[in-house]
């Protein structure tokens, strides 16, 4: 039993669970938990975008809600104002988010450390205020509901989100593809370059790596992921609102990423899942559960900065080294 086997088994179990959840979950809990799980998967992409930038490249962005919001508005405005179909609207949303990431990233990644974090917030605030005040187009914080076009329609056959199974599996497949893509990138030379830039950007540039371009690539990929999340969110809720572009949303994504375990591929899902489940369970019991959330955040930063993913990695290593027969344990 080595580390890779344990991890692969864990991932396998997780995938199995996800694919059977619409039928498995209602056996144990209320059916609306399937919807919650969909939401968790969607939001986890936002956390994943934070994770990519912070865990792998060392850049803490506190403004990913901007790209989420553009994905969301691209879909909503595309459908509502431009009469776009499902796929064009999806594409429009993701395009807007990614394009914005290219532009803002080109500026932001010239900065590092605190200045980078600050400017990501500033950029997201600029567009938040624009979205908030541009009511005729965005609906401001009143929100903009819209009716969702079918995913696919040909003659009599119509596949649409109005069918909960379609909705669930579309989300699962899209999110799954995103993680697969991310995993592939992280195992590539570019993924390794991310790590070197995080570890020692001076050394990276001295061995001939274009640190700026590497950081920008990560920023654009992160914007893409956040955009997909936003687009899925719009389709899921048939709704868009400037509320989701506020820096608090960005902050939550950072928290999810940290608690889940930065620098791990699936950490974002764990962190997002844990905190959203906490929210669902606690909010009915204690109206002010947020106080507990705040405490958890602080305790995690102090005692477990590598989050659950870090704890899992340590546990797995411990189990793996125990079960190997007296091998060299360095």
């Amino acid at each position: 039993m080595n580390v890779t086997t344990i991890n692969r088994t864990g991932i396998g179990a997780f995938v199995l669970f996800t694919l059977t959840a619409p039928w498995l979950l209602p056996l144990f809990v209320d059916a609306f938990w399937v919807d919650i799980y969909s939401e968790i998967l969607i939001w986890s992409l936002l956390a994943a975008s934070v994770n990519l930038l912070f865990g792998y490249v060392g850049l803490l962005s506190f403004g990913q809600a901007l790209y989420f919001g553009l994905g969301m508005y691209g879909v909503a405005i595309g459908v509502e104002k431009f009469d776009l179909g499902f796929w064009p609207a999806f594409g429009f949303g993701v395009f807007l988010a990614t394009a914005m990431a290219v532009v803002t990233g080109a500026l932001a990644v010239r900065l590092t450390w605190h200045y980078f974090a600050i400017i990501t917030v500033v950029f997201s605030l600029i567009f938040y205020f624009m979205a908030l005040s541009w009511k005729p187009v965005t609906g401001g914080d009143d929100g903009m509901p819209f009716s969702i076009p079918p995913v696919f329609s040909m003659g009599d056959i119509e596949v649409s989100f109005t069918d909960p199974t379609v909705q669930y599996f579309f989300i699962v497949i899209t999110v799954g593809l995103c993680y697969a893509l991310l995993g592939r990138i992280l195992q590539s030379p570019l993924g390794r370059a991310f790590a070197t830039v995080r570890e020692n950007d001076l050394r990276a540039t001295l061995i001939g790596l274009n640190v700026y371009a590497i950081r920008l690539s990560a920023f654009v990929i992160a914007g893409f992921l956040a955009g997909v999340a936003g687009a899925l969110f719009a389709f899921f809720g048939r709704y868009a609102s400037s509320v989701y572009m506020f820096y608090h949303v960005s902050g939550e994504a950072v928290v999810w990423a940290i608690i889940g375990g930065i620098g791990t591929l699936l950490g974002p899902i764990i962190g997002t899942g844990l905190l959203i489940i906490l929210r669902e369970e606690l909010s009915s019991v204690w109206e002010h559960y947020q106080i507990l959330v705040g405490v958890i955040i602080i305790l995690t930063v102090i005692f477990a900065p590598k989050g659950l993913g870090g704890l899992w990695a340590r546990l797995v290593e411990h189990v793996a080294s125990r079960s190997s027969h007296g091998g060299d344990v360095k």
Partner: peptide
């Protein structure tokens, strides 16, 4: 964990706001 200080103060903000609201 200096980079995470912003996260800790975020948690603090949540506590303060919700605490006052409570």
């Amino acid at each position: 964990a200096a980079a995470l200080s912003i996260v800790a103060t975020f948690g603090l903000s949540v506590i303060l706001q919700e605490g006052v609201r409570a």
